[in-house]
């Protein structure tokens, strides 16, 4: 069902990208009738749909990426028994378990392994595409640091999503209660209410909020391309974007929401699905068996500006 949604989304993208893996999945192995196996297969298909989505992003020139995804998927599906084959599969299973609980019993967290981050910025780009972000709005930039001097020089990359703080400095400042902490830990913005005063932007100690000025990348060209005017689906709703029309989220503060619209439909956040280095993890911290719970127990764990007492829900492994 969810994979089907993904396909539909791709079709509306207006690109000629198909996900043949959906139709050409190899024949079910013997004993495939049992529930575990089909669940497993569904999970894999969702993971693959994500990869296909990335391929779609880069246009038809990147059909090759989709091909690779298909080939990989086929090989994974062939040996579909046993423990999860990779971290994506495990996180999808974690996600499924979390979604079966009531919302207030979940606590979404993100873990980013800086040793694995290659600085490719696929997360930044996939986030921009997923949420149709206009100029001036970015949810997950990657900070690049250069440490040391030649010849002993290293680079470090720090992706910076919204920290979804447990003690957020941005929510109590809102004069109209348009932004608040959800029971599952995500700091949400109500686009229909936000008056665009930008006090929350000033209040965030991570610069994680940006303002939508209603701009277009193609503004000074003969045509504003359709990829800029497509709606986005933040917070599970369709937000239309038309040049010359001042409608939310234009004029609002905007920020990362861990792709709430995706996770509530059983998909991982776009940045997690597209992370080439496998450096970004996502899941329910209230679940002892989840991958993120395991990773937060690492001795390498740290959080940004911990001294402020904001209690970020994004953990870094250094």
């Amino acid at each position: 069902m969810i994979a089907h949604n993904s396909m539909q989304m791709l079709e509306t993208n207006g690109r000629d990208v198909h996900l043949p893996v959906m139709n050409n999945a190899p024949p079910a192995p013997p004993g495939a009738g049992d529930g575990v196996d089909t669940t497993r297969r569904a999970l894999l298909q969702r993971a693959i749909a994500g990869a296909g989505g990335l391929a779609a992003l880069f246009g038809s020139g990147s059909l090759l990426t989709a091909e690779i995804a298909r080939a990989e998927a086929a090989s994974v599906l062939d040996g579909a028994d046993g423990p999860p084959a990779n971290h994506l599969e495990r996180m999808l299973a974690d996600l499924d378990r979390a979604l079966q609980k009531p919302m207030e019993q979940r606590k979404w967290v993100m873990v980013i392994d800086l040793q694995k981050c290659t600085g490719c910025k696929a997360c930044t780009v996939s986030c921009v595409a997923e949420n149709n972000l206009p100029p001036g709005v970015v949810y997950r930039p990657v900070i690049e640091e250069e440490i040391g001097e030649f010849p002993n020089v290293r680079r470090r990359f720090i992706p910076r999503p919204c920290m979804q703080c447990d003690n957020p400095p941005c929510t109590p400042v809102c004069p109209v209660s348009a932004t608040y902490k959800r029971p599952d830990g995500i700091v949400q913005i109500d686009y229909d209410v936000c008056i665009g005063c930008r006090y929350c932007i000033a209040a965030c100690p991570y610069n994680a909020r940006t303002a939508d000025f209603g701009e277009y990348y193609n503004a000074d060209t003969p045509e504003i391309m359709d990829y800029e005017t497509r709606p986005n689906f933040e917070y599970g709703r369709e937000w239309k974007r038309e040049p010359g029309r001042h409608a939310s989220p234009i004029g609002n503060a905007r920020k990362c929401h861990f792709c709430l619209h995706r996770i509530e439909n059983g998909m991982l956040p776009a940045c997690v699905t597209t992370c080439l280095g496998g450096a970004t993890y996502f899941g329910d911290y209230n679940d002892n068996n989840s991958l993120v719970h395991e990773l937060v127990g690492s001795t390498r764990v740290m959080r940004l500006k911990e001294e402020l007492g904001t209690e970020p829900k994004v953990y870094y492994l250094v």
Partner: peptide, 23 residues
């Protein structure tokens, strides 16, 4: 003139947030 949504200013009264210094 500075507000992103100029016509929503009344919300400061209809949706009060008592912790907000701006409110």
């Amino acid at each position: 003139f500075d507000l992103g949504h100029m016509w929503r200013n009344y919300e400061v009264f209809t949706r009060p947030n008592f912790t907000s210094m701006m409110a």
